[in-house]
Amino acid sequence: MKKTIWMGIFFGGLLLTLPANAQKVLFSFDKETGTEPTEFLREGRWVNGGGDAAGTMEIVKAHDHANGGKALKITRKNGLANFSRLRVQTKNLNFKPGITCRVSGWFKGDREGLAQIQLTSPWAKNKKQWYKPIDFRVGKEWRRYSFEFIVPEASANSTLTSGKLYLTFGLFQNSLKELYAKDILWEVKK
């Protein structure tokens, strides 16, 4: 538990904060030059639960997408023992509570299977953490998915009072071995 908290603090320190008035953020991997994405991190559970032995996160060519370019690929290896999903997450973005967000992006799997996308406000001591997961099925062919998240107004004891959110997505270990993602767009609707 201590280790998890420590890692959370470590990553929290790395997170960059995006402008509060950002209406549209595109996470494109096309410009990535390294083997790992610069705007996504492995969840703390993943890092603590085995790192590369549990699974890998890498930038690959989206050779079978009409747009070409690059994609983020999550690969399950040994998997996590105490958590059902291998997920990656963005840095925190500033936001105003009470908004509706739309997140869309291209996804595919190595087979038909279940993936998950989630908006989360960062954990804070003595606050009730807000998060909203959505499960979705992917296939072997790329498909663009679109998800709507209604972020409630922040009550006093909610983590939403921090005015920050981050985006998480990943695969269910018992369903998929690989998940690919490309051109993820996070928009504020109102």
């Binding site: 079978d64 009409a66 062919e141 663009r144």
Partner: peptide
């Protein structure tokens, strides 16, 4: 040779 096509929602091979 494969041809990849996208309609903005779906990708076809």
């Amino acid at each position: 040779t494969k041809v990849y096509l996208s309609d903005g929602e779906r990708n076809f091979t």
